[in-house]
């Protein structure tokens, strides 16, 4: 840079820099240029997703001493003992049941509500808001509400049971009822999301298709079966995948309602991870389960995409 240039730069520094900018950008290769834009999300994902994930895999190779400090390197031994243990198998089974109790009923209820709310009636938007309101409800609030409803002595559910001449049930402390009770709370909690997504899917179906089906002679049931359901299949598929992932990650409602009890009847994998990590401070064992949960959800999602998506019609 010679003296005249420097003088020019002093007079109009910004313009001078701007004039050179394109040349400099051309110097950086395209990948580097793309990375500049990716840095913010890479930093966030790196710090909160990739690093913890790798750290969990890593921690799984080490035992943890009774004080919560990293102990001896045991390679895959800890993975083997934890994953074959009776308690892990139990929490896996509970998680599976929990998903079974929450995902299909959640989709069916969401579909039913969405079909109701898809009618063209005056004031229907009030119902749409009501049906979707659980989206805006926090896990804690929902759990406390259901804690009251499920209360063995003053709860509404038992009130109806007694009215019907049935014995009271201590929902959350009953070995058979605790998991269904927690599942019911979860279904209610996730219903808003399923409702909103399915309603949006319903509204994307053109009105003329219903009309032409009617003119062609289809009954209401046939219209639903041959028109609504196939065209809604991508939406239902999406809701089932997201619902399954949500079920496998549920924690708050279990923590508030049952603390995994009674006798581990509601100890899903996430709850077991939390107990091992933050009650027993056995980070190694918790990490092994966390890695297992990650692989499980990944595998399930892949299977769902592979097999369920074949039956889905995309426009």
């Amino acid at each position: 840079m010679d003296a005249t240039d420097a003088a020019a730069n002093q007079r109009l520094p910004l313009i001078a820099v701007a004039r050179r900018l394109p040349q400099r950008l051309r110097g950086i290769n395209r990948l580097g240029f793309a990375l500049i834009f990716l840095i913010p999300s890479l930093v966030i994902f790196g710090a909160f997703v990739f690093y913890p994930l790798l750290k969990a895999v890593y921690l799984g190779f080490y035992e943890t001493d009774p004080f919560g400090n990293q102990g001896d390197f045991v390679a895959l031994d800890q993975y083997r003992t934890v994953l074959t243990s009776e308690s892990f198998r139990h929490s896996l089974w509970i998680t599976f049941l929990f998903a079974l109790y929450t995902v299909p009923p959640g989709i069916l209820l969401g579909l039913a509500l969405a079909l109701l709310a898809n009618q063209k009636l005056p004031g229907i938007s009030i119902f749409r808001i009501m049906f979707s309101s659980t989206v805006a409800t926090s896990v804690a609030v929902a759990s406390l509400m259901w804690l009251t409803l499920l209360n063995p002595s003053v709860g509404l559910l038992n009130y109806f049971l007694v009215e019907a001449g049935q014995p009271r049930i201590d929902w959350l402390n009953d070995l058979d009822w605790a998991l269904p009770a927690v599942s019911a709370t979860t279904v209610w909690l996730n219903l808003g999301l399923a409702f909103i997504v399915i309603l949006a899917g319903l509204q994307a179906i053109p009105e003329e298709l219903y009309e032409s089906a009617r003119v062609e002679g289809a009954s209401d049931l046939s219209v639903f079966w041959h028109v609504t359901l196939p065209l809604l299949s991508p939406t239902l598929f999406f809701v089932s995948v997201v619902g399954t992932i949500l079920a496998f990650q549920s924690f708050g409602q279990i923590h508030i309602l049952t603390r995994g009890g009674p006798l581990d009847a509601t100890t899903v994998i996430v709850y077991s991870i939390w107990q091992d990590a933050f009650q027993r401070f056995d980070y190694g064992v918790a990490s092994v389960q966390a890695v297992a949960l990650f692989l499980l959800v990944l595998g399930l999602t892949v299977i769902q995409i592979r097999f369920l998506e074949r039956r889905v019609f995309y426009q």
Binding site: V215, G217, A218, V227
Partner: peptide
């Protein structure tokens, strides 16, 4: 469905 009429829609309304 009981009128025995057929309709062709502007955007065809094919399934």
């Amino acid at each position: 469905k009981n009128r025995n009429v057929a309709m062709v829609f502007q955007n065809y309304a094919l399934f």
